[in-house]
């Protein structure tokens, strides 16, 4: 059992949880994720680690309620326990000095982007951070991300905060202005798809961190498979980060919807039981 030490509600649907787990806190690196399962009937879901505190032995995750499992997690409070938590999983981000980097995060994808962006900055890169969301309330970790960025930009679809427009518009503005050596993006698959299309045009190396459906998360089931460069790869052990220009995002998007009907059944049952 793993104790929730702290909970902060960041927006109507998004919460930050600090959870006790000394082992993961000590050994996790940027880019890695954990699998969480809540109780006997729970499913195993992957969540990327946003931060950790080695001294306190805690890790931070950010969850957006979109279905049964994420809603259960969102509803936890300080003092509650999570029955199963395993990690760190996946290959850590390869952090190196490449020059100028754009770190592009959409929605809750900003959470796992945080440690990655920070590590690239610490490695001596010029860091331009762009956060994007549908609307102002969905922008998370603004102050944290701003703190170490050389340049910082916010984009909202509805223009309620920062600049109005999609994240690709913000990226293009910078590419047109100066030489960018690398883009790292994290967020909804559809957002990463369009970022990849844009940067391929400009021939800029781009890394995307994928969040696919997983069951065990340890390289056994193959639920997370994606086509990268024409070959089948497993996000849990080969990833989660891949060369975005080689990822078949259309296939990934369809595979993400594999259980849409079942997810709706489960969620409406959960919400009904909650009442």
């Amino acid at each position: 059992m793993y104790k929730v030490i702290e909970k902060t509600v960041l927006s109507e649907n998004v919460a930050k949880l600090i959870i006790e787990n000394k082992t993961i806190a000590k050994n996790r690196k940027p880019g890695q994720f954990v699998i969480i399962k809540m109780g006997e009937i729970g499913e195993r879901i992957p969540l990327t680690i946003a931060d950790s505190d080695t001294e306190k032995g805690t890790i931070t995750i950010i969850v957006q309620k979109v279905g049964t499992s994420s809603h259960k997690l969102f509803n936890l409070n300080a003092g509650d326990h999570i029955s199963d938590l395993v990690g760190p999983l996946g290959q850590p981000t390869e952090i190196e000095k490449v020059g100028t980097i754009i770190a592009a995060g959409g929605g809750v994808g900003v959470a796992p982007l945080y440690p990655i962006a920070k590590a690239f900055k610490e490695a001596g890169n010029k860091l331009i951070t762009i956060l994007a969301a549908r609307t102002k309330d969905l922008i998370i970790l603004e102050n944290e991300m701003k703190e170490f960025a050389d340049e910082f930009m916010i984009m909202t679809d509805d223009g309620s905060y920062g600049k109005k427009g999609l994240i690709t518009a913000g990226i293009e503005e910078i590419i047109n202005r100066e030489k960018v050596d690398m883009v790292i993006c994290l967020g909804p698959a559809i957002m990463m798809k369009f970022i990849a299309l844009l940067t391929r045009k400009h021939n800029i190396h781009t890394i995307a961190s994928l969040n696919t459906i997983m069951v065990d998360g340890t390289g056994m089931c193959g639920a997370c498979r994606v086509t990268v460069g024409g070959k089948t790869k497993f996000v849990c052990v080969d990833g989660p980060e891949f060369n975005a220009h080689e990822v078949d995002f259309d296939e990934m998007l369809k595979r993400l919807n594999a259980y849409k009907k079942e997810e709706e059944t489960s969620y409406s049952k959960y919400l009904k039981d909650l009442k």
Binding site: I41, C221, K269
Partner: peptide, 30 residues
């Protein structure tokens, strides 16, 4: 081979055996 609804045996059996998906939606794993 990566079309939707193509499983590996490992995934199919893990969902049903370990995660008890045969009891979905009583159990969360579909």
């Amino acid at each position: 081979e990566n079309l939707v609804n193509i499983y590996s045996s490992n995934e199919y059996l893990t969902r049903v055996n370990l995660m008890k998906a045969y009891k979905f939606p009583e159990y969360d794993t579909p």
